[in-house]
Every structure is written in C-alpha cells, then in structure tokens.
Amino acid sequence: MNQYQLIKLAKRVGLYALIAVVMVYAIFPFYYAVITSLKPSSELFRVDFWLSSLDFTNYVQIFTQKSFVRAIVNSIVVSLSVVFIALLLGITASYALGRVRFRGRTTVMLVILGVSMFPQVAVLSGLFEVIRSLNLYNNPGGLILSYTIFTLPFTVWVLTTFMRQLPMELEEAAIMDGATPWVTITKVFLPLMWPAMATTGLLAFIAAWNEFLFALTFTLTDSQRTVPVAIALISGGSQHELPWGPIMAASVTVTVPLVVLVMIFQRRIVSGLTAGAVKG
C-alpha cells in the first residue's frame, strides 16, 4: 500500500467515525428515553446503556390513565382539523397569490410573512379575549382557531411557491374552455398540487402536534389538554420525585408516530423546509 492509498483510507475512516458521532448524538436521547421507559421503577436509578429489561408497567400506567388517552385524542383531533383548515384556506389563497396578477398582491404576501414572524406571546392576551368571547376557552376548538396563526401563513407561502412553478398552458387551456377560477382550482390544479399539499400538511401537522404555549394557556382541565401539556404537567409528590418512568413512556408514545412520519416522508419534509431557500 503506498502513501496515497493510506491517506485515502485514513480519510475514509475519519469520515465514518465522524458520521458515527453525529448519529449517536442525534439518536441517543431518544434511545435513552426508550430504554428508560422499559425499566421497572426499582431499576430506574441505575444507569444502563443497553436495554436491560422489557417491562411495560410504565406504558400500562399511562394508558390506563383516562386523562392521557383523552389528551392523545384531543391532540389528534386538533392537529387534523388544523391541517384541514390550513390546506383549505391555503390552496384557494395560493391560487390567487400564485396565478393571478392584481394590485396589492405584494402587500398581502408581506402581511403573511409578517404574521409568521409574530411572537406567539404578543397575541396571547388579545387572543385569550377572542377565544373567551367565542366560548372556546378550555375547548379544543379554541386551539384549532389559534393554531391557524402559525400554520396558515406557512401553508399559504409554500403552496404559493409550488403553484407558481406549474406551467401556464394548463390554465390557459382551462380558460379557453370557459372554466371558472373555482373549476380551474379543483379540476386542474388540485390534482397536481397533491405532493405539495402532502408536504405542507405534514409540516402543519407536526407544528400543531408539538405546540405548547397556546395549549397550556387556553386549556384548564385535564380532559381538554393536548399531549405536550399533559406530559409537561405529569408530576409526582414534589419537584425531586418526578415519575420519570411514566414521563419517558408518554414521551416515547407521542414521538414514535412523528419519527415514523419523518422516516417515511423524509424527502418531502426536506423539500418543504427548504422550499425556495436556494432558488432566491
């Protein structure tokens, strides 16, 4: 083996070592939560690097708790409704912004961009009042309404970017045939927009599923909470006696669906996150 080959080999080994470090760094906290959740409480305080037992007591405990199951249902209902509303309003708005030239278009786009930069806490008191006056306080409906503040601007923006890339001829043909704008959207664009809608829908779902501040502030009772709040509020006798086993079991339960989604739709998520970033 000559010197050149040796250097090449060393570089290869170095690369794989670095990759291994990054992989461990990215995955270890989740992996550690999984092995913690599978331990009986008696072994919880011994540090283990490998799966030492397969004890499902923690999972049984959280799933027999009515409020946790209820929180999962609430989270699913809220996230799916948010996705539905964001896509419905987003697809029509993005047609207007992406395909039609009209006065005030740039202003509308700037408003949307501005709203997406709002710190949530800046609207907290005003939104609290709106939600209470609509009788939606301590109700998943209030969360569905308030989550549009961060899902809608994002959805409209990404869908507009995608809408713009579709060829002009399609629409011209539709116009020649006398199709109204509504028919153009539903019959011509909708079938072509499915990939973009899947991407934005997925990102909106993840954002709604993970949201914490509004969920904490606009709900009061256990039966109305979403999972992030339920997990944050799991407590033991005192600050130093947190029931780590059940907390980790609950954490793993709400994370697994997301990890699976990410694994399956990795490409879509990446394209959604970077949409437009390098195209300028």
Binding site: V22, A26, I27, F30, A33, T36, N210, A232, V254, V262
Partner: peptide, 20 residues
C-alpha cells in the same frame, strides 16, 4: 433521516428527555 429526528421530536418531549 436519523439527523432529522431531533427536529421532529416535540420540544416538550426533548426538554423532558434531556431533563432526565
């Protein structure tokens, strides 16, 4: 895909995992 995992984990959950 593995590198994306921390991004997908809810902030509350990652805070709890690290707290532990």
């Amino acid at each position: 895909a593995a590198v994306l995992i921390p991004w997908a984990i809810p902030t509350i959950v990652s805070a709890k995992m690290w707290a532990w």
